[in-house]
């Protein structure tokens, strides 16, 4: 019951969704459309799980574990500030946009920008032409990098064309093969879900 009921629900819904794609039926199509809209609402409601976990974890750190208390307090203050101001003013208010642009945008983009520095260090340490395959990878990477920057054209006028050729031809072939492989994998996963063999997504909580 604890496993079979959720599996049955997934199977029925999957079959309905796939049937909706192939069949034009005045009963089936509106039903699936409304079902999908209902799931959108449920997905939005599920955000609360993450919120509760965040609050629980940080309150735990402040009261019980006593590690990084200042940082956890800052997490909760930042969370509360955005929730309270958003609830009072609304998400479209210019002052809320100001908070978003001042706090979230710089932090989010800087966290990802850090990876640029680490990629540079990793490229320097790991990008070694140890074999022919590694050499091809290195060469393609270098040509594409030069082709994308204006200096590539200054160094050699054919660099942008060569870079574009790598993107248009060998890269297209490689990516196309990978995408087709992913599609086959997705199909086999769906068949496993429909037949009830795939249970990984039913991992329970605490």
């Amino acid at each position: 019951m604890k496993i079979k009921l959720p599996l049955a629900i997934t199977t029925i819904i999957l079959v309905l969704m796939v049937a909706d794609y192939f069949v034009k039926d005045p009963l089936l199509n509106p039903l699936v459309r409304d079902l999908t809209k209902a799931i959108l609402i449920m997905t939005a409601c599920a955000v609360g799980i993450g919120v509760i976990r965040l609050i629980k974890l940080n309150v735990d750190r402040i009261t019980v574990r006593k590690t990084n208390r200042l940082e956890s307090a800052i997490t909760l203050i930042a969370f509360a500030a955005f929730v309270i101001v958003g609830a009072i003013l609304g998400s479209g208010h210019p002052n809320y946009a100001y908070m978003f642009n001042t706090i979230i945008v710089p932090l989010d983009s800087t966290m990802f920008a850090l990876s640029g520095f680490y990629m540079a260090s990793a490229a320097y340490r790991a990008f070694r032409a140890r074999s022919e395959e590694a050499f091809v990878l290195l060469l393609a990477g270098v040509v594409v990098m030069l082709g994308q920057a204006p200096v590539g054209e200054v160094l050699w006028s054919a660099t942008p064309s060569l870079s574009q050729w790598i993107m248009d031809v060998p890269n297209t072939a490689g990516v196309r093969a990978l995408i087709m492989g992913i599609a086959i994998g997705m199909l086999s996963l769906t068949i496993r879900m429909i037949t009830g063999h795939e249970k990984g997504y039913l991992a329970s909580g605490e």
Partner: peptide, 17 residues
């Protein structure tokens, strides 16, 4: 660490709203 934790809190708050 302060910047990192603030990022998590602010992002979660915005998403929740």
């Amino acid at each position: 660490r302060i910047a990192e934790y603030m990022y998590v809190g602010a992002g979660t708050g915005y998403g929740a709203v």
